Amino acid sequence: MMWSKKQFRHQLNSEIPLSTPLDQLQLLVIDTETTGFAVGKQDRLIEVGAVPVAGLQVLEKNIFHSYVNPERDIPPEITSLTSIKQEDVVHAPASLEVINHVFAHAREYEVNAIAGHYLSFDLQVFKHELRRAALKFQQPPSVDTLDLLAYLVPAWEMKDLSYYAAVFETRMYNRHTAVGDALTAAYLFCELGERLKERGKTTWGDLLELSSSRQI
Results as ranks from 00 to 15, higher is better:
63 I>G: 01
13 N>T: 07
7 Q>A: 13
39 V>K: 01
88 D>Q: 07
126 F>V: 01
62 N>Y: 12
32 T>E: 05
33 E>S: 03
50 A>E: 02
100 N>S: 15
126 F>H: 01
120 S>W: 05
163 Y>M: 06
111 V>G: 00
48 V>A: 07
149 L>F: 09
207 L>H: 04
7 Q>W: 08
41 K>M: 13
159 K>Y: 11
33 E>L: 01
187 Y>T: 03
199 R>L: 11
78 I>N: 02
210 L>K: 03
189 F>A: 05
33 E>D: 07
107 R>A: 00
118 Y>H: 15
117 H>M: 12
157 E>V: 10
149 L>M: 13
12 L>P: 00
107 R>P: 00
198 E>D: 07
78 I>M: 08
77 E>C: 12
106 A>Y: 02
155 A>R: 14
87 E>L: 06
157 E>H: 14
45 L>Q: 13
154 P>K: 04
71 E>K: 15
129 E>N: 09
115 A>L: 14
64 F>E: 04
10 H>P: 14
98 V>E: 04
138 Q>M: 12
118 Y>P: 10
24 Q>S: 15
170 T>M: 11
26 Q>C: 12
141 P>S: 10
93 P>T: 04
133 A>M: 06
200 G>M: 06
18 L>C: 09
31 D>Y: 08
200 G>R: 04
158 M>E: 07
39 V>H: 04
18 L>T: 09
35 T>K: 02
12 L>T: 02
41 K>W: 11
151 Y>N: 13
103 F>H: 01
19 S>V: 07
206 D>G: 03
46 I>K: 01
113 A>D: 02
59 L>V: 06
51 V>F: 04
176 H>L: 11
108 E>G: 09
68 V>A: 08
139 Q>Y: 13
183 L>E: 03
155 A>H: 09
53 V>H: 03
171 R>V: 11
189 F>P: 02
176 H>W: 10
37 F>V: 15
78 I>R: 00
52 P>N: 11
199 R>Q: 15
175 R>A: 15
79 T>H: 11
136 K>N: 14
164 Y>L: 15
87 E>C: 07
29 V>E: 00
18 L>K: 13
189 F>R: 00
148 L>G: 04
123 L>D: 00
211 S>H: 04
206 D>H: 12
80 S>L: 10
6 K>S: 15
92 A>F: 06
66 S>W: 01
120 S>H: 13
93 P>K: 07
80 S>P: 06
61 K>V: 12
173 Y>E: 06
143 V>G: 05
185 A>K: 01
1 M>G: 15
71 E>D: 11
133 A>T: 05
215 Q>G: 12
170 T>F: 08
85 K>N: 09
140 P>E: 05
183 L>N: 03
111 V>I: 08
46 I>S: 02
147 D>I: 03
202 T>D: 10
73 D>F: 10
88 D>S: 10
106 A>D: 05
55 G>L: 02
109 Y>C: 07
181 D>G: 03
19 S>C: 08
211 S>Q: 05
29 V>N: 00
